[in-house]
């Protein structure tokens, strides 16, 4: 089935002062989906996002948004998109309503239309009550909501969110996720960057895993996990000298797709756990390998990330805006 393409990134490269932030990147975003750019800090996801929203010009390659080139037709693109930046881009001296009024003027909305839309948005993000207080009195979550309202003010076809829940408490996070899902049901296309795996997993229809300026994997979270090939059984052995024997015994068996020694035991990738688990236990018994611990899990997005980048997302602590 052919789906309408909202954004087309083709062979995008961006170089800053000889440092290549993004190299030969190509992907499409379909209309109506939530598309995630997942990667550690410095991976190039913010550069990619900023190029799509016309803040950066590509060193080479092209980006088109709903058929409009982001360099030649930057002004047209800007009318079609909304942006929620990573930093709380809030003027602490202005009230929430004044933020929206300012943007209303910058998007050239007629006064009546702007007033109506602002009232709707304040209601949507539950900021009606503090709307006329200066933004410096807002909590982190409230500022984020105002950010989102600002991004939605132009009634965009595509909304861009840069690390939408970075540094938020759990409650606010879930609230933001709800908004994003609701916007999708209204037919909006959403593109977001994140370095939270659970966020990518729960929220995004499709993901591009970006590391060191290149796409390492692309697909729905489920596809990516299935793509790894099977579930994972991890064994911890009491006697670690037996690891190699057990690896040798299991490798030949048809139910095991891949067997790998770890410092304390084995990681076995299996097609179906129902067939594999009895076989594993039987072999362990025959070889007199006592098991200290056995764990079985479906591949998680972290496993996908490790498989494609060779390192764990968890190694990276979220830092402030280093991209």
């Amino acid at each position: 089935m052919d789906r309408a393409i909202a954004i087309q990134v083709s062979r995008l490269t961006k170089v800053y002062d000889k440092h290549t932030a993004v190299s030969d990147l190509s992907f499409d975003v379909y209309a109506g989906e939530i598309f995630g750019l997942l990667g550690p800090n410095g991976a190039g996801k913010s550069t990619t996002l900023r190029t799509i929203i016309t803040l950066l010009t590509p060193t080479s390659g092209t980006v088109s948004v709903l058929g409009h080139d982001t360099v030649r037709e930057a002004d047209v693109v800007r009318r079609l998109i909304g942006y929620v930046p990573q930093e709380r881009a809030i003027d602490r001296f202005l009230t929430g309503r004044e933020h929206l009024e300012l943007l209303g003027a910058l998007y050239h909305l007629p006064k009546a239309e702007a007033t109506k839309r602002i009232a709707e948005l304040l209601k949507l993000v539950e900021l009606e009550e503090p709307a006329d207080r200066a933004a410096k009195t807002y909590s982190g979550g409230m500022k984020r909501k105002l950010d989102i309202a600002c991004g939605l003010l132009p009634d965009p076809k595509i909304l861009f969110l840069d690390e939408p829940t970075l540094g938020l408490d759990v409650q606010s996070r879930l609230r933001i996720w709800d908004y994003v899902r609701m916007l999708k049901t209204r037919g909006m296309t959403i593109v977001m960057t994140t370095n939270y795996l659970d966020e990518a997993d729960q929220l995004c229809d499709r993901l591009a895993i970006i590391d060191k300026g290149a796409i390492k994997a692309l697909g729905s979270p489920t596809e990516l996990k299935i793509g790894l090939g099977g579930d994972i059984v991890s064994l911890t052995l009491k006697d670690q000298s037996k690891i190699s024997v057990l690896v040798a015994a299991l490798t030949k068996q048809p139910a095991m797709r891949a067997v790998k020694a770890t410092p304390t035991g084995l990681d076995i990738r299996v097609e179906s756990p129902e067939k594999a688990l009895p076989a594993i236990l039987e072999s362990a018994n025959q070889l007199d390998c006592q098991l200290e611990f056995i764990e079985y899990h479906r591949p998680r997005l972290d496993d996908v990330f490790i498989a494609h980048t060779g390192r764990s997302m968890k190694d990276e602590l979220p830092k402030e805006n280093v991209e």
Binding site: L55, P85, L106
Partner: peptide, 13 residues
């Protein structure tokens, strides 16, 4: 520094 300029620059002004 706080990203407000970036927000302004994404509007069609």
């Amino acid at each position: 520094e706080n990203g407000f300029l970036e927000r302004l620059m994404t509007t069609p002004i």
